[in-house]
């Protein structure tokens, strides 16, 4: 079934039939004539797979079919079903892992979600997290938040004296001369796509999504 919205088409795939039948049906449906918009802009299409699980190869195949039949641009493929691995991965990405102790020179800690360290990161030590990094201690080594590409990730430290800070694919290093104290600070990517270090208090404004507790005051 094809639906049109102002953002483009939505292709809803039948989730009861076999995959081969689905492909045939899709080709048939798409062979119906339609006029491309006069301004020549590529029309976006979203695919809803319903309760059908599509493997990576199948997804690619469907993208190809849709693209070849009509020059539609497949925006995304939605499905109600995900694999167990993917589900576990998502849980891990949401989880906060914690550790007490010191991350010393040469040690690398990598977690998929958020990371809470009660202790210091010494020069030469490194923390990599898929999400945010919170350090109750001094950061003197390298911290890499959002290391799988999450640009909204932040780094928070009681003492921010890092050798390097990395968020997603951005990198920043400490100034060569700096005698300020840097207590209770955070680092994030601002709207100019640069890593900035600021007071902890600004986080509430910049990353409202970090507040998950409701009520209170």
């Amino acid at each position: 079934m094809i639906k049109g919205t102002k953002d483009g088409f939505i292709l809803m795939l039948n989730d009861q039939c076999g995959y081969e039948v689905l492909k045939e049906e899709l080709i048939e449906k798409l062979s119906v004539q339609y006029k491309a918009p006069a301004d020549g802009q590529a029309v976006k299409a979203r695919i809803e797979a319903g309760n059908r699980f599509l493997t990576e190869e199948q997804q690619e195949e469907i993208r190809q079919i849709v693209h070849q039949q009509k020059s539609l641009l497949v925006d995304d493929i939605y499905s109600n079903v995900i694999t167990k691995d993917e589900a576990e991965q998502r849980v891990r990405e949401k989880e906060m892992s914690s550790m007490t102790g010191i991350v010393r020179s040469g040690q690398v800690i990598e977690v998929e979600g958020d990371f809470l360290l009660v202790g210091d990161v010494n020069p030469g030590g490194m923390i990599m997290a898929g999400g945010n990094i919170y350090i109750l201690g001094t950061l003197r080594g390298i911290a890499h938040a959002g290391c799988y590409g999450k640009k909204e990730a932040v780094i928070v430290a009681s003492q921010m004296l890092p050798a390097q800070i990395r968020i997603a694919s951005k990198l920043n290093r400490a100034p060569d001369q700096d005698d300020e104290s840097h207590e209770m600070e955070c680092a994030y990517i601002d709207d100019r796509d640069q890593i900035v270090v600021d007071r902890l208090q600004v986080l509430r404004k910049i990353r409202p999504g970090m507040t998950k507790v409701e009520g209170g005051i």
Partner: peptide
């Protein structure tokens, strides 16, 4: 001190 830090990490 940097090397000592590394060694302490390994010793731990």
């Amino acid at each position: 001190v940097r090397d000592a830090d590394r060694i302490i990490g390994l010793l731990e």
